[in-house]
Amino acid sequence: MAADRTETEAERADRRWNETLQEVRVAQTGAQILFGFLLSVAFMPAFHGLAAFDRTLYVVTVTLGALATGTLIAPVAYHRMLAGQHLKPQLVDAAGHLVSVGIVLLALTVTSAVLLLLRVATAHWIAWPLTGFVTGWFVICWLLLPFLLLRRRGKNPPR
């Protein structure tokens, strides 16, 4: 229990579950919208004119999008199946792991979607460095900045 909080294990699990749900709402919405747009691409007339590499990249992107969406929805299914079983702390831990994996899958989906879009919309050579820049930005915003904040405070990541 944190020194600045006076909460029971059940209260802590409830708080952590509510925080996880808020995180899931943000990530899940983005994943679902992106996935929906990706599904429609194959039905566009220009899709059939894509090079073999770009078609393969599209398949990889859609697959990553499906995995991200499913992983980010999984905590809801866990909760539905485990509600009332007095497993909230374990549920929260499992959901936290799923959200982390889902965010990685979402980042990979966005990265591959950006590469596909830039390969189709620009000269192929510029797509790779721009996609690298976007990926680097994700690493900075999603990993490096939180890590630096924790390091500055001298703490381990919260559970």
Rank of each mutant, 00 (worst) to 15 (best):
A2H: 07
A2E: 00
A3N: 06
A3W: 11
D4P: 01
R5C: 13
R5D: 10
T8S: 08
N18C: 10
E19T: 08
L21I: 13
R25Q: 12
R25E: 06
R25F: 14
V26D: 05
V26H: 12
Q28W: 13
T29S: 15
I33R: 14
F35L: 12
L38E: 10
S40E: 06
A46M: 02
A46P: 05
F47D: 10
F47S: 13
F53A: 02
R55F: 04
L57P: 08
V62L: 00
L67S: 06
T69K: 05
G70L: 09
P75T: 11
A77M: 05
R80A: 01
H86K: 07
P89A: 03
D93L: 00
A95I: 06
H97Y: 02
H97C: 03
V99K: 07
G102K: 02
L108D: 10
L115I: 00
L116T: 02
L116F: 01
L116I: 01
L118N: 15
R119P: 02
R119I: 00
I126Y: 05
P129V: 04
P129W: 12
L130D: 14
L130Q: 13
L130Y: 15
G132C: 02
G132E: 07
F133H: 08
T135V: 11
W137Y: 13
F138P: 12
F138E: 06
L144H: 14
R151V: 09
K155F: 14
K155L: 11
N156G: 10
P157G: 10
P158N: 13
P158Y: 13
P158T: 13
R159C: 10
